[in-house]
Design a protein around this nucleic acid. Structure first.
Lengths: 244, 244
DNA sequence: CGTCCGTTTGAGGATCATCAATGTCCGTGG
DNA sequence: CCACGGACATTGATGATCCTCAAACGGACG
């Protein structure tokens, strides 16, 4: 049941690492580590490392803000419970993602591990103090949050689609871009369950299932074991992804 | 055709103002001005004020980053053109909103005025330099971007709904909370067109129309002139909003 | 008064949610 | 070694909702 943790994508020698894209122009447009070695070391000095088994709640929505987290190993999900009891996954969290930035002293989403995970945990006040003292470090956080804002907008674009197969294809495409370079020869790892997928894509569990079937039947994507996928027909795949 | 600009919600005596919610605990949870007087004055020193007529493009997606903007008066929209030609409005921008934070030196969305608008325009490098110099100022920007991240997530929750009337009701509810306190006796101003609404809610133009009709027919909301709405049956309205 | 643009309304077709049942994987225990 | 059980995933049938195409309506303005 406990799946293998997502392959670590970040060297963890000297402290937390943050993945993102700079606001200003740089060499290439790919996500990369935003922090310098000294910055990571300073963060590490006030951070504690926590290792959590899969399916552990890190914090709950509405709870009082106490720590800010930086993911180091594993995959997590951030979600909200709707009044009806339905769940909406706002985002999946991968190594190098920051979470726990609250509003008005309270967390907005509930965050839960999907795989085993290792996190850096930094006391809220300590981080705030450090950011106020180190503007360059803070600037990287600003870039990171801006990047997450974009991700949220992309999420909105995905769930705006009417066809389930298209949504799933876009999600796979995003995962593929996000994935660690050295993943298994074109196979996209899907650590999350079908239910998590459904809650992220805003589809019913059954529709996700039908979408995977459809992609398989049409020879566009192959699935294996429910937790891995591979693009077979790249042309059709891209056409589907861009058929918004 | 040119509609009245959104009632100014912010005193503009001494420079740009930013509306948002603090990350850490404060007195109440409502959006408010995040900047101190001195901060506003310092921003004003490097900002220029631009007044734009309705329907003016401020910048286009993919264009090179040159300025960061803070809205002062009026309403704008940020949208992306999809490959198919369809448009998705990512967010509406109100007085006190910041926009133009790019990725990798290029704007992500196209931003266009809806009403006449007045903006503060700050050269990218000048703002970056000022943020790196003034960590407290930057901290307010961080709070603002975090707040916009939440707004994006709420947007995702809205468009996740399956029923058009419910989406519209949630949107009205958001506008109502956002609205300047002294708006006209419970009337919610809708400066944007039905098309803008449709593109924000990810509905067809016709569905928006049918949704307004449905809300009217059911006696929940009254519309007037297409650019104002008022909640008639508050109980049913809230029930609909929370029926997710 | 007529045009133009934006909005509203109608009919038919496509897609997904829901309810229900069946199938698959995997660990457990006999 | 094999049978069992539970969680998860797939498949099928029906109904609800929205999108598309199409046409009628309305106000603003020359």
């Amino acid at each position: 049941m406990t799946r293998q943790a997502h392959a670590g994508t970040v060297l963890e020698d000297s402290g937390p690492s943050i993945r993102g894209i700079e606001i200003e122009k740089r060499t290439d447009g790919s996500a990369k580590g935003l922090l310098s070695e000294p910055q990571r070391q300073r963060l590490a000095a006030v951070a504690s490392v926590v290792s959590l088994p899969a399916r552990t709640i890190v914090y709950r929505a509405e709870a009082e803000l106490s720590w800010i987290f930086i993911s180091s190993v594993g995959v997590l999900k951030a979600y909200r419970e709707m009044p009806s009891g339905k769940r909406r996954v706002a985002s999946f969290l991968f190594p190098g993602d920051v979470f726990g930035l609250a509003e008005n002293g309270h967390y907005i989403n509930t965050v839960q591990t999907i795989t085993n995970a290792t996190l850096y945990r930094i006391p809220n006040e300590a981080l705030a103090a450090m950011l106020r003292r180190d503007a360059d470090l803070q600037f990287q956080f600003l870039a990171k949050v801006t990047h997450e804002l974009r991700q949220g907008q992309r999420h909105a674009i995905v769930i705006a689609r009417r066809d389930a197969a298209g949504r799933l294809a876009m999600f796979l495409s995003m995962l593929e871009k996000h994935a660690p370079a050295g993943s298994h020869a074109g196979w996209i790892q899907l650590p999350m369950s079908r239910t998590d997928l459904a809650e992220y894509l805003c589809l019913s569990l059954e529709s996700v299932s039908r979408a995977t079937s459809a992609l398989t039947r049409r020879g566009i994507v192959a699935f294996q074991g429910g937790h891995a996928a591979k693009v077979i027909d790249r042309v059709s795949f891209e056409k589907l992804v861009n058929a918004l």
